[in-house]
Design a protein around this nucleic acid. Structure first.
Lengths: 194, 194
DNA sequence: AAAGAGGCTTGACAAATGTCAAGTGACAAA
DNA sequence: TTTGTCACTTGACATTTGTCAAGCCTCTTT
């Protein structure tokens, strides 16, 4: 399973990884299987690991006073998932993270992440680029949320990340877009008649 | 003016900065005065600099088909501003950045940023922490946009960043929150009667 | 096979928000 | 001073989106 990480790093950098470095990487990541509906993180706990998804589908969400779930992040193969705020600040998380499909992940603690950053230059760069991409992606999502209608946001998602629409049930997609399941159902109906 | 940067870095790290390092920093940053309404970046151009705001108030926004402005970022003292996507990817920006008040900024190109990262460890950490904080802040804003009503988003902003409400005109705040100026006016009226 | 749960759709209605138009007041330019 | 511009407010109305309730379908469990 660790092979997935090797490929992943290589996709972010051109630097080769030596065998010793590879050994360090193997020691840093802890593989774990997470079954559908199983939690990786529960609200109130401190996020001790970031998870690299080797295979599967997961989500990060909060639950409001009325018990309604608000999904703020989807994760599938080759994506990271976890609450960065809690992970870095060591504060109790306001979010839950759980598996939507049975998933294989690689867990990384904050200490191991520091270790990798210090010892493996390629990793430093990988993390830094990752942070930048996350920020850019967030910026796009903010832009969509203040500039576009619900219908346009759905079209945008369908264009950029069609795979998410197939992997996650419609009510979760609605939550991710910030609209009710009924509204999404109606938007899709309209979109079909074209 | 460069003294502002020294203080800024020290607020992010405990490492002292030597005189040689300080010299490198002085060479990297180019001071510039930007008058109210003056552009730092225009849509279609590549964002060549990130700007550290020493004094003043600026905004990053897009303009849609109908000519309506959508503000995705405010910047005041000690904040960075610029289009990160364009800056990193070297692609034409979809945004404008201009000054809302007369402002003093320090410009940093991509090359100089690399130089600082390579030569000054404290800077590497500063940028990395900055990226992380940006990501966390974005995440909070996404959460607000899908979970809260317009009224709650305003209350949230008023609580977290009251200074922005005083520095930026109300129609810009409305745009930032993703609502019409009329709606914000009504929300404020309601909020007063409590 | 029967029962139940969950996800999706649909209709009727309510609530939130946007749009348009008019009016006011402050401030800057002439 | 006068004029004009611009931000803000307010009212009337339109549009979008949410809420609630019912029904259908599929899948799982018993």
């Amino acid at each position: 399973m660790h092979e997935a990480i090797r490929k992943y790093i290589l996709s972010y950098t051109n630097e080769a990884i030596s065998d010793e470095e590879y050994q360090i990487i193997q020691d840093a990541f802890v593989p774990k299987k997470i079954r559908k509906r199983q939690y990786l993180l529960q609200e109130g706990d401190v996020c001790k690991h970031l998870a690299f998804i080797v295979h599967g589908a997961m989500r990060q969400y909060s639950v409001d006073d009325k018990g309604i779930e608000h999904i703020i992040h989807f994760g599938i193969e080759n994506w990271w998932i976890g609450d960065r705020e809690s992970f870095i600040m060591l504060t109790p998380s306001k979010y839950n993270v759980d598996a939507v499909e049975d998933s294989d992940v690689l867990l990384l603690t904050h200490e191991k992440m520091q270790l990798l950053s210090d010892k493996i230059p390629a990793f430093t760069r990988t993390f830094s680029v990752l942070d930048q991409r996350n920020f850019i992606a967030s910026q796009k999502r903010i832009h969509a949320s203040i500039s576009l209608t619900a219908e346009e946001r759905y079209a945008d998602l369908a264009e950029r990340n069609p795979s998410l629409l197939q992997r996650f049930p419609q009510n979760m997609v609605a939550s991710y877009l910030g609209i009710s399941p009924e509204t999404l159902s109606r938007i899709r109906k309209k979109a079909l008649s074209r």
